[in-house]
């Protein structure tokens, strides 16, 4: 057996090679993070989630109003104004106002006028959305912010 048949001696990983691998690994993580970041948009091509409802005096106590293009339900009572989302908490269908409360056309969930689940597969009550005021005093609704049920906004 000739000595050449022995495996070549290979030096241990040098500092250089570790440094190279390290920076590349770091850059790879950075590139991957960037790619994932790209997939989460800053803005959506749809009207803003926070929108103007109207002036407070447009909603005197006793008002009940459905805003279909925003899928919301506005109730005004002496305690204040509240906005309930009409999106079913089960799988996202739009519930329809019925005699007493709301019916979901998709899987038969039923809600009372305050959004509490009466029957059906819906896991939780309809969402109450945050009502606030803009600087010019008009009422704003933010479809992205949920508040506790029975939170009434008083200006």
């Amino acid at each position: 057996m000739s000595e050449r048949l022995k495996p070549d001696p290979v030096p241990r990983r040098s500092f250089l090679s570790i440094a190279g691998l390290g920076t590349l690994a770091l850059a790879g993580v950075g590139a991957l993070a960037g790619m994932v970041r790209l997939l989460k948009p800053y803005v959506y091509p749809e009207p803003m989630a926070r929108f103007r409802l109207g002036r407070p005096d447009e909603f005197p106590p006793g008002t009940v109003k459905v805003v279909p293009e925003r899928s919301i339900y506005v109730i005004s009572e002496p305690e204040g104004v509240a906005v309930i989302s009409l999106v079913c908490t089960h799988l996202g269908c739009i519930v329809a106002p019925a005699d007493k409360g709301f019916d979901c056309p998709c899987h038969g969930s039923r809600f009372d006028p305050k959004g509490r689940v009466l029957r059906g597969p819906a896991p939780r009550a309809l969402l109450w959305l945050e009502v606030s005021q803009a600087a010019d005093g008009s009422l704003m609704v933010d479809a992205n912010r949920e508040v506790k049920p029975n939170t009434w906004y008083r200006g």
């Binding site: 040098s14 250089l16 190279g20 390290g22 920076t23 590349l24 770091l26 950075g30």
Partner: peptide
């Protein structure tokens, strides 16, 4: 190896710049 470390650092710098 030296080149790799250098370009790797450059790449990181460019990523940082982008960020």
């Amino acid at each position: 190896q030296v080149g790799l470390v250098l370009t790797g650092v450059l790449l990181l710098a460019v990523f940082l710049w982008t960020g």
